[in-house]
Simulated assay, not measured.
Amino acid sequence: MIVTRPAMPAEFADAQRFYDACGYGGAAIVPTDTVILAREQERIVAIGRLCHEGGLLCLRGMQVHQDFQRQGLGTQVLRELERAIGDTPCYCLPYGHLVTFYAQAGFARVGPDELPELLRERLANNLQRGLDVIAMVR
C-alpha cells in the first residue's frame, strides 16, 4: 500500500537522497519547504514540494520513481500540494508536456513577461540549458 502525506523534517534527508537518485538537479530541500512524499512502506516512490523563494510560493521537484510511473502517484502528490497551496498564488516551471497534468490542480500557462524577475531568470536559464520548460501559475 502506498501512502501520500507531508514529510516530517526528520525525513528531509531521505527525501533529498530520493531527489539525488532521480537525477533531480534543482535546489536542495530547506527546512521551510513543504515536502509531500508517497511511500511504499519505508521506500519513497514519489515526491513534490513547495518552496518559499523571494516572497513567492513555488511548486518544485515533482518526481516519481520510474518503477511507479503511470500509476497516479504524481496526481496524488499534486493533490496534497494543492491542499497546502490553498489560496496563495503559486508558480511552477514544468516541462512543456506536463501542461495538462498541472492544469488539473488549477495551474495555467503564462508568458515570461508575467513572471516575477526571479522566475523569469530561472526560466531563461532553463531554456538556455535546452530544457523544454514553460511557466505556470495558480
Rank of each mutant, 00 (worst) to 15 (best):
T100Q: 15
A46F: 02
A84T: 06
L123Q: 05
I85D: 14
T32I: 07
D20W: 04
G48I: 00
R79G: 11
G86N: 04
Y102W: 05
T75H: 14
F68T: 00
R138I: 10
A124T: 14
G111D: 13
R129S: 14
G74K: 09
Y102I: 03
G130Q: 03
L118F: 11
A108V: 15
Q66K: 12
G106N: 04
Q41C: 15
R79N: 12
G61E: 01
P9S: 00
G48Q: 08
Q63F: 08
N126Q: 15
V45Y: 02
F18S: 03
P116M: 10
L59Q: 09
M1D: 06
G72R: 06
A135V: 01
E42Q: 14
P31G: 11
Q104H: 13
G26I: 05
A38H: 09
V64P: 00
T88W: 11
Q71Y: 09
A38G: 08
F18D: 02
P94L: 05
D132E: 13
G54R: 00
F107W: 04
P9T: 00
D113K: 10
R49D: 00
G106E: 03
G72N: 04
L50D: 09
V3H: 14
Q16E: 09
G96A: 14
D33P: 12
A13F: 09
I85W: 08
V64H: 00
E53G: 01
Y91D: 00
P31A: 11
E40F: 15
V35M: 06
T34R: 15
R60S: 06
M136Q: 00
V110H: 02
L78W: 00
L131F: 12
L50K: 09
Y91T: 04
R109C: 08
A10T: 12
D113N: 12
L118I: 12
E40G: 10
L73S: 02
R109D: 07
T32D: 12
A21Y: 05
G25Y: 02
G111I: 10
G55P: 13
C51W: 07
P9D: 01
R83F: 10
D67C: 06
V45P: 12
A15C: 05
E40S: 14
A103V: 04
V77D: 01
P89I: 04
L127S: 03
R60E: 07
N126I: 08
D132M: 12
A46E: 00
G111C: 10
D132Q: 13
L56T: 08
E42A: 15
C22F: 07
